[in-house]
Nucleic acid binder design. Sequence first.
DNA 1: GTGGCCTCTGGAAACGGTTCCAGAAAAGTG
DNA 2: CACTTTTCTGGAACCGTTTCCAGAGGCCAC
Lengths: 334, 334
Amino acid sequence: MEKRAVTIKDVARRVGVSVSTVSRVLNHSSYVSSETEQLVLNAIEELHFAPNQIARGFVNKKTSTIGLIIPDVSNPFFSDVARGVEDYAIIDGFATILCNSDWRSEREAMYLDLLRGRWVEGVIIVGSRSSAADLTRAIGSVPYVLVERLMVGSAPSVWTDNRRGGALATSHLYEIGCRTFAHISGPPDSPSATERRKGFLDVMRRESVTAYEIFEGDYRVQSGLDIGQRIFANGKAPEGIFAANDLMAIGVMQAAAQAGVRIPEDVAVIGYDNIAPTDYTSPSLSTIDQPGYEMGRVALSILLKRLREPHTATAEQIEFEPRLMARNSTRKAP
Amino acid sequence: MEKRAVTIKDVARRVGVSVSTVSRVLNHSSYVSSETEQLVLNAIEELHFAPNQIARGFVNKKTSTIGLIIPDVSNPFFSDVARGVEDYAIIDGFATILCNSDWRSEREAMYLDLLRGRWVEGVIIVGSRSSAADLTRAIGSVPYVLVERLMVGSAPSVWTDNRRGGALATSHLYEIGCRTFAHISGPPDSPSATERRKGFLDVMRRESVTAYEIFEGDYRVQSGLDIGQRIFANGKAPEGIFAANDLMAIGVMQAAAQAGVRIPEDVAVIGYDNIAPTDYTSPSLSTIDQPGYEMGRVALSILLKRLREPHTATAEQIEFEPRLMARNSTRKAP
DNA sequence: GTGGCCTCTGGAAACGGTTCCAGAAAAGTG
DNA sequence: CACTTTTCTGGAACCGTTTCCAGAGGCCAC
């Protein structure tokens, strides 16, 4: 049953030539006469031979595999990033190992171990919360690129200025006339979440607003719903709510619908990420755009560049612009 | 710079023992005195040694890696499946290689080649359109499980009865009073799409309806939008529209909003998959539920079972129930 | 004609583990 | 005490590929 796979030896034997020769035609690495080359090629075809990548990777320490650690594929923003990474990785023949960290550092460390054991050539880590020290310890000497996480000075990364994005969202609420606010933040140790909160506070300070409250969410719909219910329960809802991501904003909108609170007439709501569903909600959800697919693509290209030129030690850091997408959830009737 | 990783030899040398002995303590495969074991364990700790999985996989032909081929991670249904697969794969120490086929057989075949070259132990293929013959040729002797694709008699698979689901959706439209229909189908060679269309036609025949039309979409929002615009343009819209997936249904709803067509008063719309955003649309979108996460989980467990017991040739085929989720897009005012 | 440079080829080592084999020491058995 | 059995250990082959080394011709130049 377990019919042994056909190896380079089989094709060598078939042609009556040495394995080195076959290897040479495989890699075009040295002189091979065109007639033996043709014979070998024919044999490869006939025997249906495909070189064993494991053995290959074993000898030249190249696995053509990268790791992708994201918090959660079922979050549309991250699945966009994943798609961006994978689409371009495959072009260069790289396979992508998918890891869901659930924003937990232990899981991240566990995956990093797993990936290292598999000799991935590089890793893209999205939304990491780990400290710089923990990260470098866990990752060893494997090249990596961070997404949505700026590490001071050192690591190559792709991100948007979350603080500015948070300020953008909050300013927008202020400009349409809101004077009392709530912010639903992401997980407390998530770098992007703390930056967005800072952006929110920047505007509070700049406009000398003191009537605000901050709630702690976890970037999931459910937490937006829960917090929304609490906010709308006491009948004293703020005029503007900035949720640190779209999923929580959607949760808030559901809570509002349940409580009979009208958006945007009674409360304006804005999210963050610009995931596809924000366009389908009722009303459509204002948000801050982060180009997930593009960020994934760029992260991958930086990683590949590092792999090809390991000695150019410049840590590329690419910043994307957060862009306001004003939709109906913040469109007050005049 | 490229500091060589520490190998089994290094720890052997350190303890003054042979590599075989170290290998034995690593795998508990044979007698080792408890004191040498302790010494080896210490050395492993001190040197920070981690066995090279590539080398390991090379000798015992076990890579602890599986492949996951899905049409598109950024489609919420498939990202749910992906999450279900990965969550449980990692428990057994399996890494998951992510592949996006875009529903194209050539890409599927290309990925299959890639995965085979990497000696994945098994593959889960979601929504394949390839013929049975093509599939078995491309996949060789690698165990696999199909999701959303029932192959007559042979392959292990996890699916819902799409024909019944299609009928369920269509019956629902009929029951709420629709008498003229449109169906927006998925890509023509997608098995799930053709089954859903059959289910639609079953009901048309059963109820002797002739006033229906079928449009061909591609499972993306845009195609739903395009087709919706065409449908609503001529002013002669059907009473009920069954879109073969939720994304296209969302596109139809957008087209309706643009054209000033009210849902459900003027037209009832139902989708398929029950992806999360169906709950946030306005009105909320009726659909047929397919438990993506659960299907991924089960597919993985079947695959692992196959890997552990390669000689039990029973092809497990697990069927999930399609369930009607009646929401507001089909709730006619009485 | 002798030497040197291409072109082509095969042999063998190496990568980092696992596993089989054999032998030595220790322990048990009559 | 002679024997078998069990426990422990090292040596070596092996997995499938790449790559280094060396050698054999062929061709050209001097």
